[in-house]
Amino acid sequence: MLSIRNISKTFNPGTVNEKKALDNLSLELKEGDFVTVIGGNGAGKSTLLNAIAGVYPVDKGKIFADRIDVTRLPEFKRASFLGRVFQDPMMGTSPDMLIEENLALAARRGQRRTLKWGITEVERENYREMLKRLNLGLEDRLSTKVGLLSGGQRQALTLLMAVIKKPKVLLLDEHTAALDPKTAAKVLEISDQVVNENRLTTMMVTHNMRDAIAHGNRLIMMNAGRIVVDVSGEEKKNLTVKDLMDMFSSASGSDEANDVLLLSGKNA
């Protein structure tokens, strides 16, 4: 479904701030794979997702979605086969627009925007049904401005917008990191629900090792722009946080104790 072949990305090349974010990285995702991505700060997790989404071009390598080469496609064109949820709850929605208008925008992803009315009555009913299933009470607030919602509500809405067009690949970039633990758990639960219902191929970046183990059928760990651990199936099911910590230490070397600490700290 998604095939990443030998991509590299260096930020600020030739300067003192040069940072190799992706280093000859390759990854194959089968249809229906739900991959959790972990790694320390600066490991390249977000860069990987942004490279897939086309936020910036890669220096070399190729990206295929459903066997189509999308390496050179601009961000807005790739959106037709991608769904994305960001870390910042403010980033995925338009605060000045109504809940129904945000959903209607997402429902037209990959289509030409015409001079037809931006939302139909039939859509409204659909949206109400979809929102009802989130159990957040949003179904009665279709004409509320999104700016008035809480961070968790906005992330749940962004999730709905991301999957409304059944994307080929769903990219979740630490989408619960900015939420309080209870809300984060709720949004994760909704994520699982929509991914399972739609059998979406998914990549979820997380800082939380327990979440990384509990969700999905495959787990990859990144370090210095490379994939250093890739486990799936039974092996992944039997993973423990301690296993992951050990893997992380051996993969990254003992001098990166800070990152290990950071990861375990987020686990509490």
Partner: peptide, 28 residues
């Protein structure tokens, strides 16, 4: 009328949140 159409809504989205607009396939 115009800002209630699909095109008008996309322009409003571009204005308030270009990141979101691009993620929703809008040529900002």
């Amino acid at each position: 009328w115009f800002f209630g159409t699909e095109k008008g809504c996309s322009i409003r989205a571009t204005g308030t949140n270009p990141n979101m607009a691009r993620a929703q396939g809008i040529n900002t």
